[in-house]
Design a protein around this nucleic acid. Structure first.
Ligand SMILES: [Zn+2]
Ligand SMILES: [Zn+2]
Ligand SMILES: [Zn+2]
Ligand SMILES: [Zn+2]
Lengths: 132, 132
DNA sequence: TTAATAATGTTATATTATTACATAGTGTTA
DNA sequence: TAACACTATGTAATAATATAACATTATTAA
C-alpha cells in the first residue's frame, strides 16, 4: 500500500482531512473526525501527524497546536516555514515569499550557529476583520 | 506592593526563577520549584506567566512550551522575538539583531495584512555540540 | 523466506493548560 | 473615610494536548 502513494492508510486519511480544511486542525479535532474511519486512539493520530510534518506535507502552527497542509512547494520539506495569523478570526495563511525565505535561510547567528531550519509566525488583524 | 516594583509577589517569584535559569523552564517545573514559596496550583503559575509574557519580561518558546527571561531591550514588549534553538543540547538564545528585527517588522504580506507582532524560531546544532 | 523496517491497534498515563468560584489587596475618588 | 473598580491570589476540579509501552500486522529488501 505504501508504494504508489507515498502515504500509508492513516496518513492519507488524516492528510486528506487537513488538506480539505480551510482552517488549522487540532489533533483531537482530527481524532473525533476520523473515528468513523477506524482511527480510534491518540497515538494513531499523532504518529500520522509526526510523519506528515516530517515529510513536509503539513506544518504545525506552534502557537496554536494545530496543523495545516503545506501550500507552498518552496518550503523544502519543512525547513523554512512562515505563517500569517489573524488574531481575530484565527485564519492562518502560509507565506510564500522567496525573498523572505532566502533572507532567513541565509541569516547567520553571531554566535556561530548554523541554522538548519526556521519557523516564523506573524500576528495581526486580517483585511476582512479590519472592515468589521 | 505593586507600585514600587511593577511585579506582584507571585510574578516576582516566578520571574526571579526564570531569570536565574540558564535554560527555558516549563510551567510545571516552575510549579514544583516554587511550592515551598507558597505557590501551589497551576493557575497561580499560568497567571503569572501570562502577565510576564504580556509585559515582555519573559517570552514563551512555542516549540518547547517553555519560558525564558527577556535578554533584549529591543524586542519592544514581546512584539518582535527571535530565538536560536540547539536541537541537541536544547540551549535557547534570544537573538538580538536590529537588522533582522527591522526587516521582519517592515515585512508586508502580499495579502495586505499588517503585522503587529512576530515570533521566529531558528533550529540547528550549536558550536559546542558540533565539537562533540 | 527470512529479516529488517514501517505502520497499526490498544490501553494507560503523562504533560500542559483552563474554568469556575471564593477571597483579599491596591488604587481612585466621592 | 467609604464606596468602588481593578488586580491579584487561593483552591478544587477538569479539559486539552501528547507520549509510553507493548502486542500485532504489513511492506520491503536481501
Ligand atoms: Zn509549506
Ligand atoms: Zn481575521
Ligand atoms: Zn526579549
Ligand atoms: Zn547544543
Amino acid at each position: 500500500m505504501y508504494k504508489e502513494n507515498n502515504l500509508s492508510k492513516n496518513q492519507q486519511i488524516i492528510f486528506d482531512l487537513i488538506n480539505k480544511s480551510s482552517e488549522p486542525l487540532k489533533a483531537y479535532t482530527i481524532l473525533f473526525s476520523v473515528q468513523k474511519k477506524g482511527i480510534k486512539a491518540p497515538p494513531q493520530v499523532y504518529r500520522a501527524l509526526d510523519k506528515l510534518v516530517e515529510t513536509g506535507k503539513i506544518h504545525k502552527i506552534e502557537s496554536k497546536n494545530a496543523f495545516v497542509a503545506c501550500r507552498n512547494s518552496d518550503c523544502e520539506i519543512s525547513k523554512a516555514t512562515a505563517f500569517s495569523i489573524c488574531e481575530s478570526c484565527e485564519t492562518v495563511d502560509e507565506i510564500s515569499d522567496m525573498k523572505l525565505s532566502k533572507y532567513l535561510s541565509d541569516f547567520n547567528h553571531k554566535k556561530g550557529m548554523k541554522f538548519k531550519r526556521f519557523n516564523l509566525e506573524f500576528f495581526g488583524i486580517c483585511k476582512k476583520c479590519k472592515k468589521d
